[in-house]
């Protein structure tokens, strides 16, 4: 019953938002500012007919998701092992932290000029998305390892566990939830970098590219349509990983405040 009420509220709030948006577009009366109706029309137009280059919405989505997943996968493959080593070996942590700490505060967009000069084709997209996704995964992995309960390690030692057994049987499984959180956040950040990444790519396809193309044509209805699609897909990816997290880590008690 409770869930039905929640759904109802969610639905109502979207309706109210659309009404307010619509009223706002009437009041300000700027021809470029689209009403929700024209945005919905734009979504349908791109989905069914295609954009000025005849690419449909599905094609744009497919290409963008593919690029993000590629960059994200490389980020996962590089960040998780590195995080594991940093988390386990204090000496490596001390060596690497002064390099990583300032780098992680450089926003992915600031890497764009470098990517333009040094890279070509799809490697540009992948690089920018990798930069975005890498640090959340790395930092969460390290945090997960640091949070391994000392009592569990002592317990393992009291049975005579070797160092490797402690790593494989205690440290890694206990940090997996944090690694997963890192993956979720990393995928989110990687996805949010898609527009920036596609700004520098040559191909006329991809959700970011779609937005940039139509911004040039002053068609803000399509721009906003593209933004909404990016938002919804990001949200869906987040939900999917959250659902996987919930299944995998049932043993992690969740705190629910009602």
């Amino acid at each position: 019953m409770k869930y039905h009420i929640n759904y109802l509220f969610s639905f109502l709030s979207i309706i109210v938002f659309l009404i307010l948006w619509h009223l706002f577009s009437i009041i300000i009366n700027i021809p470029y500012f689209p009403s929700p109706i024209s945005v919905i029309k734009a979504i349908l137009e791109i989905a069914l007919i295609g954009d000025v280059d005849k690419y449909t919405l599905a094609q744009h989505i497919y290409v963008s998701v593919e690029r993000v997943l590629l960059g994200f996968s490389i980020a996962a493959i590089t960040a998780i092992p590195l995080g594991l080593i940093i988390g386990i070996k204090p000496l490596i942590k001390d060596t690497i932290t002064p390099i990583i700490e300032p780098i992680r505060f450089i926003p992915p967009i600031a890497w764009i000029p470098l990517a333009i000069v040094l890279l070509v084709g799809i490697t540009r997209y992948i690089f920018i998305i990798w930069v975005g996704a890498f640090f959340p995964i790395l930092l969460n992995t390290i945090a997960g390892i640091k949070r391994t309960s000392n009592i569990l390690i002592q317990m393992a030692k009291s049975f005579g566990s070797s160092r490797n057994q402690i790593i494989y049987k205690i440290i890694i499984p206990s940090s997996l939830p944090e690694v997963m959180t890192g993956l979720r956040v990393g995928l989110g950040v990687g996805w949010m970098c898609i527009v920036a990444a596609e700004m520098i790519g040559g191909e006329p396809i991809g959700l970011g590219r779609l937005i940039i193309k139509y911004a040039g044509l002053l068609r803000l209805d399509v721009v906003i349509a593209g933004m909404i699609v990016i938002g919804i897909i990001g949200m869906l990816m987040n939900y999917i990983i959250l659902a996987i997290e919930k299944r995998l880590f049932k043993w992690r008690q969740e705190i629910i405040i009602t």
């Binding site: 002592q154 009291s158 205690i170 499984p173 206990s174 880590f249 043993w251």
Partner: peptide, 12 residues
């Protein structure tokens, strides 16, 4: 066979 005062079960 050490039995700790704290909870020492592997939660996973």
């Amino acid at each position: 066979g050490m039995i700790f005062q704290e909870d020492s079960l592997l939660p996973w």
